[in-house]
Design a protein around this nucleic acid. Structure first.
Lengths: 341, 341
DNA sequence: GAGTCGTGACCAGGGATGATG
DNA sequence: GCATCATCCCTGGTCACGACT
């Protein structure tokens, strides 16, 4: 009955029970040498018996290492950020780091600031941010929060350490696939202008078209939502030359195909469509969607590796962007009358 | 040049600059009375000037309150858990609590244990778990980790504090909607047996059918994936009596509709389909899916409220389950030859 | 003198007590 | 006699040093 229910055991309790000094317990905890095996075992038994858990807070106080990382995630809980966060989280736990996550639906500067302050107050060793919107990153970059900052983003807005996914290459692969099928007028439904990923995908589309000497066309601006893809269908329908569309994400592609179907335009018979993201359900769209898949596992792990490198003063080796790969399904086909096929 | 770049200022630095004792600074920080306005202002200015941020680690050490909550999220980063986690996170931040999030793709007992230990080591005040699988909850319940445990789940597996969503009511509403349309044989595509949510939805389906005196049928067991819904289409097609299906989630509903279409079965002409979750894209399925929406914002906030109540020793008032509501779209219609319509 | 172990200071704050005006 | 402030000790660990074998 000497047990106290609320307060856990301390290192001194363990020391007393094992008949050693608290310092010896500390040695055992940290796997330091110069402890007799018999002593070590006595200590370990006392630890188990008391269900002793060392206080990370106390340790952090003196070592100045909290073993905590801050993660700021902005935007609606879509597949991409959630998946990246998950893998970052798992990688961190493998490295025995805890992650304080600050999620927010909107990328409001005031909220970002509040979240960042909460993180540094909890003395995280570094802050990692998964950002889509340019302004969100800028809000953080101008904050000077006293700890290293790592961004998972497609542009480096004055933030030194950054990791990303190969958005550009993915877009390029998508457009090249369409061109290889004989399409000469490949239109683009882009994401919102403030999105860095959208910008990269648009750049990949434009560059590829330019490289092939094909005529450019005006991108159609969406907002990632199925509704905006649906609206884009009207523009495509009004452009009889357009036989292929590269859409900046799967959700808009879904809306677009829906809108085309309503207008009696067949996919891929009349118009080929390529998406981006490879959501779990895209294989069951009508038709199954050809799309670009990102490797969020690599992205998340890269972010952790970079954060650890920055902390360890090993000059942050910028990892190569996480790869993207085209997944061919049934929403693309050779252009009718094209020499291909 | 007295500034040190790595180490932040301490309470003593602030005290010295303001010409007071560290205790007075502490009073200002905690908004305690008995500080002259002039003194308070001097201190506040010193704080601003030194960019002083109080160390939460040091504070936690003496107050035994870390202002940190642990959140364990298991399962693939689907919409539901991610959305719940987001709202919990925002609610916690509003209450000035930080959230250490431990996400894991699989609900492996060993991983759960490791995550929980990491959390208590970081001295979180309570652990909240978002669990789908029964076994995952059990693994945690048998752990005795020394801090309060709150579960966001559909069954209480020996865990005192629990909040949930009204899965049962949602399923009920879905089936009643189908019955009102004249359907007499409503089949069910269920989630995996180890899922508590799946069990509740199945229970709602079964109960409603039984209450109406309609004949029961064997539920078709899926695994949440579009592929399993696709497979279920074969069973439905082989059952000419079945004119309606309540599917336990939207992804399986998508696969099911795809499979039905392949077999020349029209939705909703021949078979009506209702899903569950209301993913963003369901409105653009073909046809737009009638489904059940959960309120994750309420769910997340309820979880925080409960956690705070448990911490405050206010006996945990079990909040009413977060509501679910049927969203009618175009995948359901009156049964042909039914007196309704 | 090398391997074991213990002693005291210290990290950055909060709380009780007492001193000062 | 009350508002205001300073002086200790306390939290739970780590680290530098010294003292035994």
């Amino acid at each position: 009955m000497t047990e106290d229910k609320t307060r856990g055991a301390t290192i001194f309790d363990v020391a007393r029970l094992a008949g050693v000094s608290h310092q010896t317990v500390s040695r055992v905890l940290n796997n330091l040498p110069n402890v007799r095996p018999a002593t070590r075992q006595r200590v370990e038994q006392a630890i188990a018996q008391l269900r002793y858990v060392p206080s990370q807070a106390a340790r952090a106080l003196v070592t100045r290492r909290s073993r905590m990382l801050g993660l700021i995630v902005m935007g609606a809980p879509g597949q991409a950020p959630a998946s990246t966060a998950l893998h970052f989280n798992e990688a961190a736990r493998d490295a025995r780091y805890a992650v304080i996550q600050a999620s927010m639906a909107r990328a409001d500067p005031a909220e970002v600031r509040a979240a960042a302050e909460l993180l540094v107050q909890q003395s995280v060793e570094a802050v990692v941010v998964i950002a889509q919107q340019r302004a969100a990153l800028d809000a953080l970059a101008g904050l000077e929060l006293g700890v290293p900052l790592v961004a998972i983003a497609s542009e480096d807005r004055g933030i030194a350490a950054r990791v990303g996914s190969d958005q550009f290459g993915g877009a390029r692969a998508a457009v090249e696939h369409l061109i290889a099928l004989g399409h000469t007028r490949v239109r683009h439904v882009a994401g919102p202008p403030d999105s860095m990923d959208a910008a990269e995908r648009l750049r990949g589309w434009f560059q590829t078209i330019a490289d092939r000497g094909l005529p450019a066309s005006e991108p159609i601006i969406g907002d990632w939502s199925p509704a905006s893809g649906h609206a884009a269908a009207a523009v495509i329908a009004a452009d009889p030359q357009a036989s292929a569309v590269f859409v900046a994400n799967d959700l808009m592609a879904l809306g677009l195909m829906h809108g085309l179907r309503e207008r009696g335009i067949a996919v891929p018979g009349d118009v080929s469509v390529v998406g981006f993201d490879d959501l779990a359900e895209t294989a069951y769209f009508d038709p199954p969607l050809t799309t670009v898949r990102q490797d969020f596992a690599v992205l998340g792990r890269n972010a952790l590796t970079t954060a650890l490198a920055v902390l360890g003063d090993e000059e942050a080796v910028v990892p190569t962007p996480a790869p993207t790969v085209l997944v061919e399904r049934e929403s693309t086909a050779a252009r009718v009358g094209s020499p291909v096929e």
